[in-house]
Design a protein around this nucleic acid. Structure first.
Length: 287
DNA sequence: AAGCAACACAACCGCCTTTCG
DNA sequence: TCGAAAGGCGGTTGTGTTGCT
């Protein structure tokens, strides 16, 4: 009996893969190599599209994948640097990260952008409400119900920050007066760094400028004191691509080799932000 | 303990490019 | 040379997990 087109379409399976399907897919790859994905369905081995089979192999079944491993601080830095250089070319960026797929990089970047957007959104709310009500300078009430942890301590060698002492450079001296943020007690550097497609200016503490300063907590001041640190901004976005990176980017990995996974990184660092860190920072306008 | 928000991850969709007959 | 099929890639969505209130 001849099946109709609609019936054939119904045969295409979607959703999560089962272990048996993975096994069939692996057998096919072992026998024929990672190609002829469409033949898997045409041979009746799986009721999946060739695309789906390829994606499954590339993202989950390929050897030497770092499945379930968080991005290390080094990987984060590489992604950030390469994203500023290549843009959203995830497949290309992934070639520099052994064991990582374009999907991994994409998901990592997406999560990071969402997190930063949320932080900036919160800071926007805080600053606007603070403008409306100058008395409401307390961040504790603004952060009620939000998962904001106070900073515990600063460990320059902690993962997620990933900074070696010798990597720290001194911030440039040039300051555009128009970029001053007296209410922050900081000055914006002339050299912007990219935050996705947005631009943020580097910030420099002006220890002498006490005018209009917000009384930061000791933890906040400690963090602000670190603003000279170029990698401090890794959490917000990559340095301007025109600026020479401070670390050497690895060569692309086309033959990924297994590596030990390092857990905990960006989250550790983000979690160390004090609650009032972004309260006075205005959100960045999209172009 | 329940509810909620944030997060991480897997998988699909649609578009573009490449390959092949 | 052209068109169809396959492959590749980036964007998006759905779902499970985790941590906090």
């Amino acid at each position: 009996m001849k099946k109709t087109e609609s019936t054939k379409k119904e045969e295409i399976k979607k959703g999560p893969w089962k272990a048996e399907e993975d096994e069939v897919l692996l057998n096919h790859v072992n026998r024929y190599g990672p190609r002829d994905w469409s033949s898997i369905r045409s041979k009746g081995l799986l009721h999946r599209t060739g695309k789906s089979c390829r994606l499954r192999w590339v993202n989950k079944l390929r050897p030497n994948l770092k499945n379930g491993c968080k991005f290390s601080a080094e990987e984060e830095r590489i992604v950030i640097e390469l994203q500023s250089e290549f843009g959203n070319k995830w497949a290309r960026i992934a070639t520099y990260l052994p064991g990582r797929t374009d999907n991994d990089v994409k998901n990592f970047w997406s999560s990071r952008q969402k997190r930063l957007a949320r932080i900036l959104h919160n800071s926007s709310d805080a600053s606007s409400s603070s403008n409306l009500n100058p008395k409401s300078s307390s961040s504790s009430s603004q952060n009620k119900g939000k998962n904001v942890k106070p900073i515990q301590s600063f460990n320059p060698n902690s993962q997620g920050f990933g900074l070696l002492e010798e990597e720290v450079i001194t911030a440039t001296e040039t300051v555009d007066e128009s970029l001053r943020l007296p209410e922050l007690g900081v000055k914006l550097e002339h050299q912007p760094f990219a935050f996705g497609t947005d631009l943020v200016s580097e910030v420099q503490i002006d220890a002498n400028d006490q005018q209009g300063m917000i009384p930061f907590s000791p933890e906040s001041r400690e963090l602000l004191a670190r603003l000279d640190d170029p990698y401090f901004y890794d959490i917000l976005g990559p340095a301007d691509s025109s600026v020479e990176p401070l670390f050497g980017l690895p060569q692309p990995f086309f033959e990924p080799s297994p590596r030990r996974c390092r857990h905990g990184s960006k989250d550790d660092f983000l979690d160390d932000f004090p609650a009032d860190m972004f309260d006075q920072v205005d959100p960045i306008r999209s172009p």
